[in-house]
Design a binder for these strands. Sequence first.
DNA 1: ATAACTCGTTCACTTAAGTTAAGAAAAGGA
DNA 2: TCCTTTTCTTAACTTAAGTGAACGAGTTAT
Lengths: 193, 193
Amino acid sequence: MKNILFDFISKYVSLTEEEKNAIVSLDIFRSVKKGTTLLKEGQRSKDSYFVLKGCIRAYYVLDGEEKTTAFYTEMEALTPPSVISKTPSEYYISCIEDTILTVSNADMEIETNHKFPKFEMMCRMLSEELLAKQRMDFDEFKTSSPEQRYLNLIQKRPDLIQRVPQHQLASYLGIKPQSLSRLRARIFEKSKS
Amino acid sequence: MKNILFDFISKYVSLTEEEKNAIVSLDIFRSVKKGTTLLKEGQRSKDSYFVLKGCIRAYYVLDGEEKTTAFYTEMEALTPPSVISKTPSEYYISCIEDTILTVSNADMEIETNHKFPKFEMMCRMLSEELLAKQRMDFDEFKTSSPEQRYLNLIQKRPDLIQRVPQHQLASYLGIKPQSLSRLRARIFEKSKS
DNA sequence: ATAACTCGTTCACTTAAGTTAAGAAAAGGA
DNA sequence: TCCTTTTCTTAACTTAAGTGAACGAGTTAT
């Protein structure tokens, strides 16, 4: 399990055994059951997550309705905006499947970054990369229709279609469950002819 | 002009006179005329921008149509995704107004970050902050209708409504210019009654 | 075993965005 | 100034998403 994390880190910086041990001794590995809520609206948390195995989702509750805005699966990292802005969380994070992840808090990271400048660099590179990736996702979302978005998702994250309930996928695509259902039927009709 | 940049930096780290001089000596300040294109599709650029005065926009050309996805105004920074991913740019960046900005390239930043660890930290903090901010913008976009998005824009960036042509605003909101026009008329009708 | 709930689908109807086209208003260039 | 181009608006029509309701299949709880 730890190797997944170290493999990930090695994409950015190379760690000595000593540094690896330092990480392990932080005791950040957690195993959580499907359905567990990691973060609730209104909470002031300092925790960031990195998914080793499983799937977690972020969602808002607006007018009593859940609006899912993100899924994080294997090898994906998440620091909630509320942790950065030091304000109460506006959304929920919960586990769609039994999940293994690391939980690290902001204070811990400040200390680690201070001790190992290498870490500071890794965090910078990771943030820059995620920022660029998300920028592209956002642009793609803006410039395409719900149907195109769905077809896109099939290409880019086919696993999500399998492992996530459709009504959550729908709000992830910015539409209602009924519309996703209809849209899928429409695509199926087209593919037949 | 330089003070705008230093004021911005001071939100993250405090600089010594020596460090300020090091920045000035990099000769990164540029003044560009309205209409200038800073980056074209297909180009391999290493440049990042920080707007001191004016406005620049990022847009794709899809099926011969411009799709505007972002505006950057005073005190906003932009590193195109293509600079991070080291691939040819997928979009254009050009100036909507006469603009004063800083242009820094990736190699230069690596050197500066190496010389001043303070910079590395600032870049990390800035990226994290932008990532969080953009995450929230994306979520808001996903969870609202074109009309809500427009009303939102009036609240959050009223200046854009004034300084940007409507057809560019429309694609920024993910709709066609005609729809924005209609939507505005609809809002106006509602406000009367 | 049955009742209650969740999930996905379908349908009829409403609402709003896309499309095509035309024309007025404003901006820019010669 | 006049002409051209760009920008914005309006309108009629098409297409697709939102809404409310109903239904069956599958799951969970009692």
